[in-house]
Amino acid sequence: MNSTAPLLQVEHLTLDYRLPRRRLFAPPPHHRALDDVSLTLARGESLAVVGESGSGKSTLARTVLALERPQAGRVVLLGRDVFALPADELRKLRRHAQMVFQDPYGSLDPRRKVGWIVAEPLDALEQGVESAERRARIAETLQSVGLQSGDADKFPHEFSGGQRQRIAIARALITRPALIVADEAVSALDVSVQAQVLNLLMDLRERLGLSYLFISHDLAVVRQVADRVMVLRDGRVVEEGEVEGLFRAPQHPYTRALLAAVPRIGVPRRRVTAAP
């Protein structure tokens, strides 16, 4: 592994979803969810992808983790083209990239204990982990997200939304990945708890050198956690840049419209003009 190479490189990704046929013998129409999207993520860097619903940001997250197959383009993770790898190699690569989902209620199996949920990626992706080590890894991971090792024997319903999101983060961390893809990971949380989870994500990044691909519609959140921001609209990248520069001087009219629409304390509301 070359340590100077970017952790993740996405090149000219294009992905079409097939829509239902309009007529029996007509070819089915397509919806272009991603249109020539490229990005680079260095080790330890945090890139936010923002956009409205339907902009393709979740599709991008899923494609980066090889959960969707694009029509064109490459995803290179740790120097390896994920769509060119044989299935067993891809499986081995998966432990380096994990995902945290939005809904901490829907993403945890209610019938499994927390220890099982957290260890599932370990069981699936790393063979031959002894049970003593497995237990130690579960305890260590739970502690690293601010939970207790004894929480492994509880069920998800015994936890609040913020704690459940910690469980989801622990589950992503247990294989010691280099990349975490967080798809709206704090959107469902209350403000005070959201701040706790965002702080945890920042701590983990400093401690473990993680990289984040942070998918969000919330520009205020993005400003706090990302080094760079990429704005997607209808599957296309409309603007990309360092977070502070992009917030201070957005170049694209769409980015400006997005920023202007965010309600702010101390700033009287202006009539919104529709995005061009």
């Binding site: 403000v191 959201q194 959140v221 400003r223 706090q224 977070v243 502070e244 702010r264």
Partner: peptide, 8 residues
């Protein structure tokens, strides 16, 4: 509130 801060 992340929006209360007007800077990084």
């Amino acid at each position: 509130s992340p929006g209360a801060l007007d800077a990084v």
